[in-house]
């Protein structure tokens, strides 16, 4: 067992600043996760060479892999820092920020575009109001299980980081948003706006921009059936195309 843990962390004070690397060494303990290592560095921010520095900044909230905040690239793999256990990682442990979103500072990025794309995709049920209108539509246990699996997406961005079609200069919304469209089209009431969502997803940046690399499904921490969802959406799109064609003619 190693007595210490060595980190190599990419630092950058802001989007227009020059990036650089710093190494840190902290005492080893059992059950260390990367997140606690970052917290340890915060308590004594001195580099491996003994130079006092500032503590790296990162995004964090729940530390239970349910909020998606602490997503970063750890030894080249995009994942959450809270569930990244030191015992399962090679050293030095290399930490880098996500590359497809604007950098805020160090390991923290701004994933606002992700939420904006959800807005574009109209992934909500258009309820009539919050007043008492009785129970919602019935739902089979099977459908609930399918929808729940899709609904666990925490907008972390792992699938976007590894997608060759997704990037700051490209319109593609990515696998997570497409899976959300499927989620809402599967809901009995949500299905009433299915065509509106399909229309949005038929535009540039929608489903046709998917290059079928299938990287997304391999990195999803919640094992969401992303490629299966894109395929299902593709089939819905065929139906929608036909409906649109016949309505027009």
């Amino acid at each position: 067992m190693p007595k210490t843990v060595v980190f190599r962390i990419k630092r950058q004070a802001g989007p227009d600043e020059r990036p650089y690397w710093e190494e840190f060494e902290i005492p080893y303990q059992e059950r260390l996760n990367v997140l606690f290592c970052l917290q340890t560095i915060q308590r004594n921010p001195v580099t491996r060479l003994g130079k006092p520095t500032s503590a790296p900044v990162w995004d964090q909230s729940c530390l239970e892999e349910v909020c998606g905040a602490c997503t970063m690239i750890i030894n080249g793999v995009v994942r959450q820092a809270c569930t990244a256990l030191v015992d399962e990682l090679e050293q030095p442990i290399v930490l880098e920020p996500l590359t497809k979103f604007p950098l805020i500072k160090d390991l923290m990025v701004d994933r606002k575009r992700f939420f904006d794309d959800l807005k574009k995709s109209k992934t909500w049920v258009a309820i009539d109001g919050t007043h008492a209108l009785g129970a919602g539509p019935g739902c089979s246990q099977e459908l609930q299980q399918i929808r729940y699996a899709l609904a666990r997406c925490m907008t972390c961005g792992c699938c976007l980081e590894v997608c060759p079609q997704y990037g700051p200069e490209r319109p593609f919304v990515g696998a997570a948003v497409l899976a959300q469209v499927r989620l809402f089209n599967l809901h009995p009431t949500g299905a009433m706006q299915a065509d509106e969502r399909l229309e949005e997803m038929s535009k540039p940046g929608g489903i046709t921009d998917c290059g079928n690399a299938q990287n997304c499904v391999r990195v999803c921490p919640k094992e969401i059936p992303l490629t299966e969802s894109i395929a299902a959406l593709g089939r819905q799109m065929v139906g929608y195309g036909l409906r649109k064609f016949f309505t027009k003619s």
């Binding site: 049920v125 309820i127 129970a135 919602g136 809402f184």
Partner: peptide
């Protein structure tokens, strides 16, 4: 019921 109508995947 409201949450159900919003599409929460309740068991």
């Amino acid at each position: 019921y409201l949450l159900d109508r919003m599409g929460v995947p309740f068991n």
